[in-house]
C-alpha cells in the first residue's frame, strides 16, 4: 500500500514538473482595433505551429490596451500609436519596465460609399471635411449631397493619428459620428449615401470605395495600397506596436521572433498591412 502511494506521488510530481517545463505559453493581447486582425492571424498561425501555446486577442482601442497593460490584465498591449508620456509615467510608477516592438506598418485608407463619384481628395479637402468646414460633396467635385463623416472614438490610436497627420492637429467637427470600431465604420459607410470615413487598409472591402489622396495640393494622387505604403509614396502610413513587460521577455520573445520572421511578415503583407521587410 505504501509502495503504491509512493508511486502515485512520484507520478503526480512528474506530471506537474512536465507541465511546467514543456514551455507552453499563455499570452493575452489587447488593444488597437487596427492591429486586431493582424494579431489574430499571428496568434492563429503561431498556435498551430506550437500546439501547447494559447494566445487570446481582444480589441478595444490602443488606450484600452495600455490601461489593461497597466493593471496587469494583458501581457501585450497592441497599439497604433506610441505609448504616451502619461502612460509611461504610470508604468514607471508601477515599477513596470517594458519593451516596444514595431511589428508592421499600416496605411490609413479614406473610404466613401461606392455610389459616390468622388475618387480623390487632397489633404486640405480631407481636413475641411473632418473639421466640418466642408459639408457638401459638390464642394469637392461630387454631387449635391450632404457629407456624413464617420470617425473613431477618442480612445483609438487611429483617431489620434488621423487628427495629427491628416487634419494638421485641428479639431474634429462637432457633427461627426464617432464609431466604436473600425468594422462599424466600414458597415456605416457602405450603407450610407454621402458617407466618408477612414480605416486601416487591412479592413478595406468591396462594399466601400477607397479614395486616392494628395499631399502636394492636388499635383499627384496616391492610392492606399501596400505597395505604395512600402515605397513610401502613400503619405498616411504609421507603425504598429507591441508593448510587453521586460520581465516577460522569455515568455513573449518566441512569439515576437515569429512575427518578425519572414513568415510572420508575409502574413502581415497577405492581410493588407505593410511588412517591415
Amino acid at each position: 500500500m505504501k509502495r503504491i502511494n509512493l508511486v502515485t506521488l512520484i507520478a503526480i510530481i512528474a506530471t506537474v514538473t512536465v507541465a511546467f517545463t514543456t514551455g507552453d505559453t499563455n499570452i493575452k493581447i489587447k488593444g488597437s482595433d487596427t492591429v486586431l486582425p493582424l494579431s489574430q492571424k499571428f496568434a492563429e498561425v503561431y498556435m498551430k505551429k506550437n500546439p501547447g501555446s494559447k494566445i487570446t486577442v481582444v480589441g478595444g482601442g490602443s488606450g484600452v490596451g495600455f490601461a489593461s497593460f497597466l493593471d496587469g490584465t494583458t501581457d501585450i498591449a497592441m497599439a497604433s500609436r506610441k505609448v504616451k508620456m502619461s502612460e509611461k509615467m504610470k508604468l514607471q510608477d508601477a515599477g513596470k519596465s517594458y519593451k516596444e516592438v514595431i511589428i508592421a506598418y499600416d496605411a490609413l485608407s479614406v473610404i466613401v460609399n461606392p455610389k459616390n463619384k468622388v475618387s480623390q481628395l487632397t489633404r486640405e479637402q480631407l481636413e475641411g471635411i473632418f473639421t466640418g468646414k466642408i459639408t457638401n460633396w459638390k464642394d469637392v467635385g461630387g454631387a449635391d449631397q450632404k457629407i456624413i463623416a464617420y470617425c473613431r472614438e477618442s480612445s483609438s490610436g487611429t483617431y489620434e493619428f488621423f487628427k495629427e497627420h491628416v487634419m494638421n492637429n485641428k479639431n474634429y467637427g462637432s457633427t461627426l459620428l464617432n464609431m466604436p470600431a473600425t468594422g462599424a465604420i466600414v458597415q456605416s459607410v457602405s450603407q450610407t449615401d454621402g458617407a466618408i470615413g477612414y480605416i486601416g487598409i487591412a479592413y478595406l472591402e468591396k462594399s466601400v470605395k477607397d479614395i486616392k489622396v494628395s499631399y502636394d495640393k492636388g499635383k499627384t494622387y496616391v492610392e492606399a495600397t501596400v505597395a505604395n505604403a512600402k515605397a513610401k509614396t502613400y503619405p498616411i502610413t504609421r507603425p504598429l506596436y507591441y508593448y510587453y513587460l521586460a520581465k516577460d521577455e522569455n515568455k513573449i520573445k518566441p512569439f515576437i521572433t515569429f512575427i518578425l520572421s519572414n513568415e510572420g511578415q508575409k502574413l502581415a503583407g497577405d492581410l493588407g498591412y505593410v511588412p517591415l521587410k
Binding site: K82, K84, M85, S86, K88, E164
Partner: peptide
C-alpha cells in the same frame, strides 16, 4: 501638453 514624440511632457 506633450510633444508629438511623447518624449517630453
Amino acid at each position: 501638453k506633450a510633444t508629438k514624440s511623447e518624449k517630453i511632457s
